[in-house]
């Protein structure tokens, strides 16, 4: 039990190829898959075992890739690659451990909001994501959780934070204020 809630514990390592991001999430731009591979390839060779914790699952995900557009290292700043790579990790986690997908990207002010649902057009929930090479994951998770829970639409959703140097991710499902207290 984590965070006072039951989560699923996977003893087997689930394999997942990064290119599957694009087939399982049709709304996701190919640069996200490349950035995910690029963020991991900066520290590791394929495949990498990603340690996943949080209140959704306690598991290990084997992430693999074959090729990716290496020019992204010269065109993007590292922080942009990490940010996009974290979105890719979130897509992998959603596809591996839930029946939900990123269904829409919308612009909200200067940021892009990601919506999650079971089919295209379904935007019942939101996704907040943050990545780092080797920074503090707990602090980022707290910040992103607060950000999700203060969204102006009153939506519940997922929080994914990940670290690429020591491959690990936190995968949370959070209910919005007025929904909390409901049976999970």
């Amino acid at each position: 039990m984590l965070d006072g809630r039951w989560c699923i514990r996977y003893y087997a390592v689930v394999p997942m190829d990064i290119r599957e991001i694009l087939t399982t999430h049709p709304c996701i731009h190919p640069v996200v898959a490349d950035s995910t591979a690029g963020a991991l390839a900066h520290h590791h060779i394929s495949p990498v075992e990603l340690k996943v914790g949080g209140n959704v699952v306690d598991a290990r995900l084997e992430v693999s890739w074959t090729t990716y557009d290496e020019s992204l290292h010269t065109t993007f700043q590292r922080r942009d690659i990490i940010e996009q790579g974290a979105i890719g990790v979130a897509c992998l986690l959603l596809a591996s451990y839930t029946d939900k997908r990123v269904t829409e990207v919308a612009k909200w002010g200067e940021r892009a909001d990601y919506y999650v649902g079971r089919s295209e057009g379904d935007r019942k929930e939101m996704l907040e994501v943050s990545g780092t090479d080797e920074g503090d994951l707990e602090r980022r998770t707290r910040e992103k959780r607060a950000q999700l829970l203060s969204n102006p639409h009153g939506k519940s959703g997922y929080v994914v934070t990940c670290r690429f140097c020591e491959p690990s991710a936190s995968f949370l499902h959070e209910r919005y204020r007025h929904e909390r207290g409901d049976v999970l």
């Binding site: 049709p26 709304c27 996701i28 731009h29 640069v31 996200v32 269904t103 829409e104 990207v105 919308a106 612009k107 892009a112 295209e120 057009g121």
Partner: peptide
């Protein structure tokens, strides 16, 4: 509609 949702999502990330 599905195609519109998909296309604009890709365009926003591309932009």
């Amino acid at each position: 509609m599905k195609e519109l949702f998909r296309r604009k999502s890709l365009l926003i990330v591309e932009a």
